[in-house]
Design a binder for these strands. Structure first.
Lengths: 210, 210
DNA sequence: TCTTAAATCAAACGCTCGCTTGACTTTACG
DNA sequence: CGTAAAGTCAAGCGAGCGTTTGATTTAAGA
C-alpha cells in the first residue's frame, strides 16, 4: 500500500480529466478544431480554466488527446466488427460491418456520436502529428480488402485504396453532414437499409468497368 | 454620362471587393468558417482591415457573400453539365457529368479548387441563413434523378434523395480530404477513371436489393 | 498533529480578435 | 478652382483568447 493506495484526490483528478476529454470531444464534433475555445470546454466540464494546463499541458494537447482517444475507439470497434465476419460473407455483409460502428453511433447519439464526428473531422482537418494512428487505419483497410478482393476481381491495390477511401469518406460524410437536414428525421434502421446497398455498390464499382 | 460615368475610383473599389472575396474563399476552403480571421483575409488581399466593413459590412457578411458566390458557381456548372446529357446516356455518363465540375477543379487547382472546397465545407458547417440556395440544390438533384430513374428501377423518391446525397457527399469528401495524403499524388485523370465506376455503383446500389 | 503532495481556484498576464473612428487621397462634376 | 463623393488608411477600442501565477483546499502518511 505504498504506490497503489486509494487516493481520493487522484480519483477526483481523473474525473476532471475525463470530463475535459468528453467536453472537448463534444465541441470538436460540433465545430472542429478551429472553433473550440478553452473556456467553453471548462464551462461544459465544470472545471477551472487552469485544469487544462494542469492535466494536459495546453488546449492543443487536450484536443490531441481527445482526437486520439476518439480515433482509437472507432478503429478498434471497426476492426473488431470486420474481423468477426465469416469467410462466406458477401459484399453487403462486409459493407454492413464496415459501417457498423458509425451506424450504431448515429442510432444512439450522445458521446458515441460526438466521438464519430470527431473522427470524421480528422479526415478533413488532420492535426499536425497524427501519424501515430496510421497503422490502425491501414489495418482496417487491409482487412476489408482481404474480404473483398476474392469477390470483386480485377481491382489492383491502388484502386482498392481509392475505393476504401470512398467508402470511409461516405460514412464520414453521413455522420457529419446531416445535422439539421431532412436525413435526421429518418429512423436509423432506414438509413442503414439504404446505406448498405449504396456502400456495396460503390465497393463493387460498375459491373462492366474496372 | 451622369449615372454611368467611368469612375476610376469605383473600379478600384470593385477590385478590392473581388480581392477580398477571393481571399476569403481561399481561407474558407483551407480552414472553414471558424478558422478565418479578418486580418488574414485583408493581408492576403492587400487591403486595409476597414475595407471589409466598408464593402461588406462585417466579416460574417463577407464570408456569407464568398460562400454564396461559391455555391452559385458550383451549382450552375453542375446543372449545366447534367442538362447537356443526351437521353441515351448511361449511368456512368450521368455520374461523370455530376462529378465533372469537381473533377475539373481538382485538375486545375487554384481558385476553382478553393471554390469547390468552400462548397464542400458548407455541407458540413452550413451558415445560418443558407436557405436561399436550397432551390438550386434541389434542381440539381431532380435533374440527376430524372436521368437515372428509368435506368435504375425500384427506387422511391426518399431513397433517391439518399443516394444523391451519398453521391454528392462522396464528391465533397474527395475534394476536401486528400489535402496532404497519398491521393494528391495521383493524376486527375486517374482519379476520375477510378471515381466514375464507384459513383455509378453507389447510384445503382446492390444488384439484388432495393 | 504536522508535513507533504495532488488538485483546484480566482486573478491577472499579454495577445489577437472584429470593428469603429476620423483624417486623408483620389477622382468627377459645376 | 471648389465641392462632393468614393475609397483608403493608421490608430485605437473593448472583448475574448490561451496561459501563468500564487494561494488555498483536501486527503494521505509519519
Amino acid at each position: 500500500m505504498v504506490t497503489e493506495r486509494t487516493d481520493q484526490r487522484r480519483e477526483a483528478g481523473q474525473r476532471t480529466r475525463d470530463g475535459l476529454l468528453a467536453a472537448a470531444q463534444e465541441l470538436l464534433a460540433q465545430r472542429g478544431q478551429e472553433g473550440v475555445s478553452l473556456r467553453e470546454i471548462t464551462d461544459r466540464a465544470g472545471a477551472n480554466v487552469s485544469a487544462v494546463s494542469y492535466h494536459f499541458g495546453s488546449l492543443k494537447a487536450l484536443c490531441d488527446s481527445a482526437i486520439e482517444n476518439a480515433l482509437e475507439r472507432y478503429l478498434d470497434a471497426q476492426i473488431d466488427e470486420v474481423a468477426s465476419l465469416g469467410t462466406a460473407s458477401g459484399v453487403e455483409d462486409v459493407a454492413a460491418a464496415f459501417a457498423g460502428p458509425m451506424m450504431r453511433a448515429l442510432a444512439v447519439g450522445g458521446r458515441d456520436l460526438a466521438v464519430m464526428r470527431t473522427v470524421a473531422r480528422v479526415g478533413i482537418d488532420p492535426p499536425e502529428g497524427w501519424g501515430r494512428l496510421t497503422a490502425k487505419f491501414q489495418q482496417s483497410r487491409r482487412d476489408v480488402v482481404r474480404h473483398l478482393s476474392a469477390k470483386i476481381p480485377g481491382v489492383d491495390e491502388r484502386e482498392w485504396n481509392f475505393r476504401i477511401r470512398c467508402a470511409a469518406g461516405l460514412l464520414n460524410w453521413l455522420v457529419l453532414a446531416p445535422i439539421g437536414t431532412e436525413l435526421a428525421d429518418e429512423p436509423p434502421e432506414q438509413i442503414e437499409r439504404w446505406l448498405v446497398p449504396v456502400l456495396a455498390g460503390a465497393l463493387r464499382g460498375s459491373p462492366n468497368a474496372g
